[in-house]
């Protein structure tokens, strides 16, 4: 681990956060405006939203990949 990595990691955090906010707002707009039939889209969006958290925040791949 090098000290210089820290700012780039922090930036990654903000990118993930931004993506999540965008997804939640899209979900909200869909949920409020589409009466009926929105749920398959919402399910897909939920999976798309969960993935970056699992990947970048929870470091899922650490389980089988050696630490960088």
């Amino acid at each position: 681990m090098h000290r210089t990595e820290l700012p780039s990691k922090m930036r990654l955090g903000f990118i993930v956060f931004g993506v999540l906010i965008v997804i939640e707002i899209i979900e909200y707009v869909l949920g409020v405006n589409m009466k009926g039939g929105a749920w398959p889209l919402l399910a897909v969006l939920a999976v798309i939203g969960a993935w970056p958290i699992v990947q970048y925040f929870m470091h899922f791949t650490q389980l089988w990949r050696r630490e960088e």
């Binding site: 869909l30 949920g31 009466k35 929105a38 919402l42 939920a46 699992v54």
Partner: peptide, 22 residues
């Protein structure tokens, strides 16, 4: 922190299920 993220992931699914589907 991992546990906390998991609680967030769970909410990512609960939120549309409760508030948005219709």
């Amino acid at each position: 922190v991992k546990y906390w993220h998991f609680v967030d992931v769970a909410w990512v699914f609960i939120y549309p299920t409760l508030y948005l589907v219709s």
